[in-house]
Design a protein around this nucleic acid. Structure first.
Lengths: 150, 150
DNA sequence: ATTGACAATGAAAATCATTATCAATAATAG
DNA sequence: CTATTATTGATAATGATTTTCATTGTCAAT
């Protein structure tokens, strides 16, 4: 394929390639953090100072719908976004979230053991419920050591 | 124990038993839906017309922190709440969410197969990352059949 | 039963992430 | 290169959640 995978997805779904979309992709590609729309907007201004926050929101929403980006809600009152990682690759991870201070810990333990189950589940669910599944999340919620002390 | 489990948790964590808290618990106990704060507020008015929306929010947040209630963010722009279900019991379930129309499907398939892995993971994570884990979520995101057609 | 300390409440205003509106601009087809 | 649309950006609007603060309720100790 002559285009990057995400560009393929854009075209295949009938959307155009624009500068704001490239900028957002690049920002996400170059971080391993979970960025909020605001974070991405601020970063995007460094590259193209005319990009609007609205466009960032629209772009992230679009990317999420065509399966380029994963949207996370950790209960902070705002969403965070990440490029979808291949579950087979190392970058794939899950999260532990403190219900009090909202600290987020990424973990990669047991992902191999989980992979088979997830694949099996994903396959069965997409047939049974007629969903085209794009990605999944596993979140453990609890209280971090600091907040337990309080 | 002479008190219901949730009441124990309240007292153990140093909180008082109040009418609004009882009302919120009762509403959650008598539904299998994922209610929003507003939903719960509306229902609570039928029981005690002087309860405020603010208190509902505060109560849900408190319950979430002491492990009575599970807070869900399905990406609708508002949170939903549910009493924590015992993973061993039948009521425990996970979710499939349409990234476009936000339809939420509960599923209980493969939960038995999952149980062992979840328990093992939960134990290991709580030791490794020093979290007191209260509950977990598994979400599959995709596009429902209706939205695929559009 | 009464009281005092302080947790909890409710009303209203404030905050803040996200979305709608709409005229201007840019990307692709032909 | 031009026409046709998708896309954009500025702004205003929305709506869920939080803050503030004066009032009230809970519970342990009288």
């Amino acid at each position: 394929m002559r285009y990057p995978w995400w560009q393929h997805r854009l075209y295949k779904a009938g959307y155009r390639l624009t500068n704001p979309r490239q900028v957002v992709i690049n920002i996400l590609k170059n971080t391993d953090k979970h960025l909020s729309a605001e974070d991405i907007y601020v970063d995007s201004l460094k590259i193209n100072s005319s990009i609007g926050l609205t466009t960032v929101y629209r772009t992230l929403d679009l990317f999420q719908q065509i399966g380029i980006v994963q949207k996370f809600d950790f209960g902070e009152g705002k969403a965070r976004y990440e490029l979808i990682k291949n579950p087979i690759k190392k970058e794939h991870h899950h999260h532990i979230i403190c219900v009090k201070c909202k600290e987020i810990v990424d973990y990669t333990d047991f992902l191999n053991e989980e992979l088979e189950l997830i694949n099996k589940t994903e396959k069965a669910l997409s047939e049974k419920y007629q969903f085209k599944i794009l990605h999944h999340t596993v979140h453990f919620y609890g209280m971090c050591s600091k907040c337990q002390a309080t």
